[in-house]
Simulated scan of single mutants.
Amino acid sequence: MNNPVKPKARKILEVIPQTTNEYTFRLENNIPIKHGQFMQLSLPKIGEVPISVSDFGDGYVDFTIRRVGKVTDKLFHLQKGDQIFIRGCYGNGWPIEKIKEKNIVIIAGGTGVSPVKSLINALYNDPNYAKEVYLIIGYKDCKSILFKEDLKKWKLARHFHTIYTLDNAEYKDWNKGMITEFIKEIPFHSFDKNYECFVVGPPIMMKFVGEELLNNNVSEENIWMSFERKMSCAIGKCGHCRIDEIYVCLDGPVFNYTIAKKLVD
């Protein structure tokens, strides 16, 4: 009988420092992945954590991890050639089938850029899949900026319209201000209702981004959000991520706003 929670060892192909407390771990991988899904990463005798996939390709998968606890602290001591155990992929990802030939608005903050990074790169690599791509990406300050090289290439893409901002700090070629301040610059009126909005970041950020999108006459049905709330087992058995009848690990982590707006503890 197949054990649904049995992890498999994967070798670290590369460790890429992003900031002082955030590294990208590239692991060997042959498991099918959808944009927006997550996996369970573990170390024997230490513990297990759910981590969103930040990118993937032929033979590899990337996880961009913040050093915040027992398991992640031990991960940061690992090097190329060491092993990490993984299981998954889990959850429902971004609704790729809904975005073909549409205008795409992606709003992400902080480490919330990770769960949407692979999708952004897919749209970058296939400029004919969607129409125009509008990115609003925000970080706290210049020391917390992730994926600097990707940010540069996205900015140069003809079909991308980028707004990069820092919450309350000045930085060359970056805006200053909260993400919500720049939503009004997205030309929703010109989309003729042919668009989808993807939002991911800290819960308080997503709350205010959702409200501001509605203030700009964006339909609830066209807003999608990614939640990473208290997931533990990833298969709906432990109940840690349950909100009413919703299991974030099974029914999410990506939800339409019509459901996401009700996901409050």
Results as ranks from 00 to 15, higher is better:
Asp82Pro: 03
Cys142Gln: 14
Ser54Trp: 04
Ser52Cys: 10
Ile96His: 10
Val49Thr: 12
Gly109Gln: 09
Ile120Ser: 09
Tyr23Val: 07
Gln79Met: 13
Leu119Phe: 05
Asn121Gln: 12
Val49Pro: 01
Leu43Asn: 02
Gly57Arg: 06
Asp82Arg: 00
Lys117Trp: 06
Phe63Lys: 04
Ile104Val: 15
Gly81Glu: 12
Ile107Leu: 12
Val61Ala: 05
Ile137Glu: 13
Leu119Cys: 11
Ser114Arg: 03
Pro95Thr: 13
Asn29Pro: 05
Asn103Glu: 10
Gly138Leu: 00
Ile107Pro: 00
Lys98Asp: 11
Lys74Gly: 01
Ile51Leu: 12
Tyr90His: 07
Asn125His: 05
Thr111Ser: 14
Ile104Thr: 11
Met39Leu: 09
Ala108Lys: 00
Gly112Ala: 11
Leu43Cys: 03
Pro95Val: 07
Asn103Val: 05
Glu132Asp: 15
Val113Gln: 10
Gly88Ile: 09
Lys70Ala: 15
Ser42Phe: 02
Tyr124Thr: 11
Phe38Asp: 07
Gln79Lys: 14
Gly57Leu: 14
Thr64Tyr: 00
Lys74Asn: 08
Arg67Ala: 07
Asn121Phe: 06
Pro115Asp: 13
Glu48Thr: 00
Pro50Cys: 05
Ile46Phe: 00
Asn21Trp: 06
Gly109Phe: 01
Val116Glu: 09
Lys80Gln: 15
Arg26Cys: 05
Gly69Ala: 12
Leu27His: 01
Pro32Ser: 13
Glu132Trp: 03
Ile46Tyr: 02
Phe63Thr: 05
Asn121Tyr: 07
Ile145Asn: 01
Val71Trp: 01
Gly69Cys: 09
Phe85Val: 11
Leu43Glu: 05
Phe38Ile: 13
Trp94Met: 08
Phe25Ile: 08
Phe85Arg: 06
Phe25Met: 06
Val133Ala: 10
Gly93Cys: 06
Lys45Arg: 11
Asp141His: 04
Lys80Pro: 01
Pro44Asp: 14
Ile137Cys: 09
Arg26Leu: 07
Val105Ser: 11
Ile107Thr: 07
Asn21Pro: 02
Ile104His: 03
Gly112His: 03
Ile33Lys: 08
Ile86Gln: 12
Glu28Asn: 08
Val61Gly: 00
Ile65His: 03
Glu97Phe: 04
Ile46Lys: 01
Met39Lys: 06
Val61Phe: 08
Val116Ala: 11
Gly109Met: 06
Asn125Tyr: 01
Ile99Glu: 01
Asn125Lys: 04
Lys140Glu: 15
Ser52Asn: 10
